[in-house]
Amino acid sequence: MSTTKNINITLKIWRQKNAQSKGNLETYQLNNVSTSSSFLEMLDQLNEQLVNERKEPVAFDHDCREGICGMCSLYINGRAHGPDTGITTCQLHMRMFNDGDTIYVEPWRSTAFPVIKDLVVDRSSFDRIQQAGGFVSVNTSGRTMDANAIPVPKADADKAFEAAACIGCGACVATCKNGSAMLFVSAKVSQFALLPQGKVEATDRVLNMVRQMDEEGFGNCTNTGACEVECPKGISIENIARMNREYLSASATSDK
């Protein structure tokens, strides 16, 4: 049986008014936090306290609060999505912390994810990579061919699904010492490379997406593997190897 108790914590939170201004860590004391609360509910509680004290609440990104939309982020005690594995920050619960703990909360740190305010960062670079080639060029007429016209081996479909499970949260970039987006980009490249529907444009896709990734200022991959460890959806770095193969053969064969 779970035992819910209340704990008192000290928070060191990154506050930054906007992209132009300089930020700093502010200290807050928060008492009576239920260990059954999620981490974000704890932040709600802090914000309620700040509002009642007529102070400005902490801005942070969040939406679905069930680990699937990819909107929440946060670097907690030096780890992307905090001290638990296979989850997003919204699924992190306060029972992972002890009474009297000091908790550091920072935004994603990466050149390609500039801070907008406090803990909110701009991840639109991910969208632009997607726009450069993360699709199959098929119009939405519904008049393509029957869905069962091309059988796809179950193993391929399953692997494509595992890659497609990426939620685009950016933890891989945030945790990478190089600020590399290889795990994110390779997951999308792999999903399509593994399916017959994606093969037609495979060459252009990988070249275009990698070009956009580089333009956005993401770093290079040095096979550290931190991304895979912190990925809340368990996306495998096998995808990076697959993308490297796709990229190499595309570079050799493309006339662009």
Binding site: V138, P151, V152, D158, A160, Q191
Partner: peptide
């Protein structure tokens, strides 16, 4: 039915049976 056709054409990885069909 068109929705399923469309999504498969877009590369949506639906669950499949061992024969490769949906």
């Amino acid at each position: 039915g068109n929705i399923i056709d469309q999504c498969v054409a877009q590369g949506v990885p639906f669950a499949r049976e061992y024969g490769g069909l949906l």
